[in-house]
Amino acid sequence: TTYYDVLGVKPNATQEELKKAYRKLALKYHPDKNPNEGEKFKQISQAYEVLSDAKKRELYDKGGE
């Protein structure tokens, strides 16, 4: 599973699309609303952290993490 899959976006997604997808999923899986989905929330946050940063995203796209 790639970070793009976690957020449900395509690899060519814009920053705005990433932000929108992250917010939607973060609300859905937030531990306050969904106590059993803490791990999913962490995955979503990690994916967004990497993909929202241009340098980290470039490194990730080249095969790094």
Score class of each variant (00 low, 15 high):
50 V>K: 04
37 E>H: 14
22 Y>M: 05
65 E>T: 13
3 Y>S: 01
8 G>S: 04
11 P>S: 11
16 E>L: 10
65 E>I: 14
57 R>C: 03
31 P>N: 07
59 L>R: 08
44 I>N: 00
45 S>C: 14
13 A>W: 01
46 Q>D: 12
13 A>E: 02
55 K>D: 10
12 N>Y: 09
26 A>L: 15
3 Y>P: 04
61 D>C: 04
2 T>H: 07
24 K>C: 13
23 R>M: 15
63 G>W: 15
56 K>V: 05
40 K>S: 06
57 R>F: 02
53 D>E: 04
19 K>W: 15
26 A>S: 11
64 G>V: 15
37 E>K: 07
19 K>Y: 15
21 A>T: 04
10 K>V: 06
48 Y>H: 02
48 Y>Q: 01
59 L>P: 03
23 R>C: 15
8 G>R: 06
17 E>Q: 10
52 S>L: 06
15 Q>R: 08
65 E>L: 14
7 L>I: 04
8 G>C: 07
7 L>M: 05
36 N>R: 09
8 G>L: 05
6 V>L: 14
33 K>C: 13
11 P>G: 05
10 K>H: 12
4 Y>C: 01
56 K>M: 12
60 Y>E: 03
43 Q>E: 13
27 L>R: 11
2 T>L: 09
2 T>S: 14
9 V>Y: 00
27 L>N: 11
33 K>S: 12
6 V>E: 04
16 E>R: 10
34 N>T: 07
22 Y>P: 00
19 K>G: 09
43 Q>H: 08
35 P>F: 07
6 V>G: 01
41 F>P: 01
55 K>F: 10
22 Y>N: 00
26 A>R: 11
33 K>E: 10
5 D>H: 08
15 Q>N: 11
20 K>D: 13
1 T>K: 13
4 Y>V: 01
36 N>D: 13
33 K>P: 04
6 V>P: 00
49 E>H: 09
1 T>Y: 14
42 K>Q: 13
30 H>T: 06
14 T>D: 05
29 Y>T: 04
23 R>Y: 13
14 T>C: 04
29 Y>V: 04
65 E>H: 13
8 G>F: 05
62 K>F: 07
12 N>D: 13
46 Q>F: 09
51 L>C: 01
36 N>T: 13
1 T>W: 14
19 K>I: 13
10 K>Q: 11
51 L>W: 00
65 E>K: 09
34 N>Y: 09
18 L>H: 00
43 Q>R: 09
41 F>K: 02
33 K>Q: 12
49 E>T: 07
2 T>A: 07
60 Y>N: 03
31 P>F: 06
31 P>G: 09
37 E>I: 06
56 K>Q: 11
21 A>P: 00
58 E>P: 04
32 D>P: 13
26 A>C: 14
60 Y>A: 03
45 S>M: 14
45 S>I: 14
15 Q>A: 13
60 Y>V: 03
24 K>W: 10
38 G>V: 15
1 T>N: 13
18 L>G: 00
49 E>N: 09
63 G>C: 15
27 L>H: 10
27 L>T: 09
30 H>P: 04
6 V>H: 05
62 K>C: 09
53 D>P: 01
11 P>E: 08
21 A>I: 04
25 L>W: 04
28 K>D: 07
29 Y>E: 02
52 S>C: 08
23 R>T: 13
10 K>P: 13
1 T>L: 15
12 N>I: 05
55 K>L: 11
43 Q>W: 10
54 A>M: 12
61 D>G: 03
6 V>Q: 05
39 E>P: 06
20 K>I: 14
38 G>F: 14
40 K>C: 10
20 K>Q: 14
32 D>F: 08
55 K>M: 10
45 S>D: 06
24 K>M: 14
25 L>M: 06
37 E>F: 15
23 R>Q: 15
56 K>T: 09
54 A>G: 07
44 I>Y: 03
40 K>D: 04
7 L>R: 00
34 N>C: 08
8 G>I: 02
29 Y>P: 01
11 P>I: 08
6 V>R: 05
6 V>T: 07
27 L>C: 11
18 L>V: 11
24 K>P: 02
42 K>S: 08
59 L>T: 09
46 Q>A: 10
35 P>S: 08
44 I>S: 01
6 V>C: 06
49 E>C: 14
34 N>V: 06
60 Y>K: 03
58 E>W: 08
65 E>S: 12
58 E>G: 06
28 K>C: 08
11 P>Y: 08
1 T>G: 12
52 S>K: 09
43 Q>P: 03
39 E>F: 09
11 P>Q: 09
39 E>V: 08
54 A>Q: 10
57 R>A: 02
30 H>Q: 07
44 I>Q: 01
14 T>Y: 01
26 A>N: 05
24 K>T: 11
12 N>S: 10
40 K>G: 04
37 E>G: 13
11 P>K: 11
33 K>H: 14
1 T>A: 13
10 K>T: 12
35 P>Y: 06
15 Q>K: 08
58 E>K: 07
56 K>A: 11
25 L>F: 04
10 K>W: 07
65 E>V: 13
48 Y>C: 03
32 D>G: 08
12 N>A: 06
10 K>Y: 08
11 P>D: 06
64 G>E: 14
29 Y>K: 01
41 F>Q: 02
29 Y>W: 06
49 E>Q: 09
51 L>P: 00
50 V>A: 05
5 D>V: 05
29 Y>I: 04
20 K>N: 15
31 P>T: 07
22 Y>K: 01
56 K>C: 12
6 V>K: 04
43 Q>Y: 09
17 E>P: 00
3 Y>H: 06
55 K>I: 13
65 E>M: 15
18 L>C: 03
47 A>C: 02
57 R>Q: 02
6 V>D: 05
29 Y>G: 01
12 N>W: 14
28 K>I: 13
24 K>E: 14
51 L>M: 02
13 A>Y: 04
63 G>E: 12
23 R>F: 14
13 A>I: 05
27 L>M: 13
64 G>C: 15
22 Y>I: 02
40 K>H: 10
64 G>K: 10
54 A>V: 14
50 V>F: 09
24 K>R: 14
26 A>M: 15
4 Y>M: 01
37 E>V: 07
19 K>P: 00
52 S>P: 00
49 E>I: 09
61 D>M: 03
60 Y>S: 03
59 L>K: 08
40 K>I: 12
41 F>D: 01
57 R>T: 02
9 V>K: 01
4 Y>K: 00
64 G>T: 14
15 Q>S: 11
7 L>A: 00
64 G>L: 15
11 P>M: 11
21 A>M: 04
7 L>S: 00
64 G>Q: 15
19 K>T: 14
25 L>Q: 05
31 P>C: 07
47 A>F: 02
34 N>S: 09
32 D>L: 13
3 Y>M: 05
18 L>A: 01
22 Y>Q: 01
1 T>H: 12
5 D>K: 08
56 K>R: 13
62 K>M: 10
33 K>W: 10
51 L>K: 00
14 T>S: 11
11 P>T: 08
34 N>D: 08
26 A>D: 02
30 H>E: 05
19 K>E: 15
53 D>C: 06
22 Y>L: 03
19 K>L: 15
41 F>W: 15
10 K>R: 11
57 R>I: 02
10 K>C: 14
48 Y>K: 01
25 L>S: 02
58 E>T: 06
25 L>I: 04
13 A>R: 00
11 P>W: 11
37 E>D: 13
53 D>I: 05
46 Q>S: 06
47 A>G: 01
62 K>L: 12
22 Y>C: 03
24 K>S: 12
22 Y>E: 00
50 V>P: 00
58 E>M: 08
35 P>V: 07
8 G>Y: 04
19 K>C: 13
31 P>W: 05
43 Q>G: 05
2 T>D: 10
28 K>F: 10
40 K>P: 04
13 A>L: 01
3 Y>G: 01
27 L>I: 11
35 P>D: 07
7 L>W: 01
59 L>D: 12
41 F>I: 04
43 Q>K: 09
10 K>G: 10
37 E>C: 15
53 D>T: 04
19 K>F: 14
3 Y>T: 01
57 R>G: 03
39 E>L: 11
14 T>M: 03
62 K>T: 08
11 P>C: 10
51 L>A: 01
21 A>V: 05
44 I>H: 01
51 L>R: 00
17 E>A: 07
26 A>Y: 15
7 L>F: 02
38 G>E: 12
35 P>K: 09
52 S>D: 02
9 V>N: 00
54 A>I: 13
18 L>Y: 01
31 P>E: 07
40 K>T: 07
43 Q>I: 12
51 L>I: 03
18 L>R: 00
38 G>N: 13
23 R>H: 14
53 D>W: 03
37 E>A: 12
16 E>G: 08
57 R>E: 02
29 Y>A: 02
58 E>L: 09
50 V>E: 04
63 G>V: 11
51 L>Y: 00
34 N>R: 07
10 K>L: 12
7 L>D: 00
35 P>N: 07
27 L>A: 14
24 K>L: 13
45 S>F: 12
36 N>H: 13
2 T>I: 05
54 A>K: 12
58 E>C: 10
49 E>D: 11
8 G>Q: 07
3 Y>Q: 02
55 K>E: 09
5 D>L: 06
1 T>Q: 14
31 P>M: 06
5 D>F: 05
32 D>M: 11
49 E>W: 12
56 K>E: 06
51 L>H: 00
